[in-house]
Amino acid sequence: MFILPLMAMLIGVEFILLFNRITTSYEDKLKSDYAILVISKKELSTPLLRSYSDRVDSVESMNREDIAKEVTAGIQDAGMVAFLKGLPYFYRVHLTEYISLEELKKVQSNLKKIKDVLTVEIFGENYHSKHTMFRLVKMILNIFIVMLFIVSIFLVIKQMEVWQLAHKNRMQIMEVFGAPIMLRSGILFKIAFIDAIIATILNIGIFIYLKVTWAKKSDIDFIKENQDLLINVSDYFILFFTAFVIVLVSVLFVAVKSSEVPEG
């Protein structure tokens, strides 16, 4: 049965797609939640900040009156006006990517070069721990996928050896009578393509079940939050395509290995 190794490989592929979406979504969330605080004596514009660092995505100006109100609570209005006059400008600077701490420090030093900037706060420690955690999760997932793939490749190779033993005699007889490779391996293609279709449908079925039923009932927040990221329509085509490529390569490999005549 070619279905089992093929299913294992397709699960690997779906995990790659899924983990990719999850990490991208997680990265986006971390990115949008994070901002550098820039304090300046004078007003700053987005193009000016961008000219000092191409990592700057958007700039959000913080309401100075709100800040003044919070700080001067209980003080008379005249005091507040005076306070507001001396209050610098505060900006939240969002970045284009979720970069490493080293790169973040580079951005910080570049922004500090702006003439009127008083301080640039990157909240480095907190950022670093989150970023490290994110990298760790991504690395563990990648290791898991690679291992899953290696095991699946071994299973497919074993299956090809079984096929070769089972079909070698017939293929060689057909070759002696002049059958081209596609005709010799016709029956293998037929079996393999049927297996590919079944394996893909089963895989899609499993992931749809996980998305619609299991993820909904799950008590784990992370799974609930990422429910929509589980299998989507474009994955169906990717899985079908992957399965077909795998069977095509496997069958051609068996057919060529079964040939007794060197290619010339």
């Binding site: 005699n169 017939r170 007889i173 057909m174 070759e175 002696v176 009578f177 002049g178 059958a179 081209p180 005549v261 010339g264």
Partner: peptide, 18 residues
């Protein structure tokens, strides 16, 4: 070679049937 073989009839001692 495959083309040539299509026009040759081969008989084996061990029959080589499928």
């Amino acid at each position: 070679l495959l083309q040539l073989r299509r026009n040759i009839g081969i008989i084996f001692q061990d029959y080589k049937l499928i």
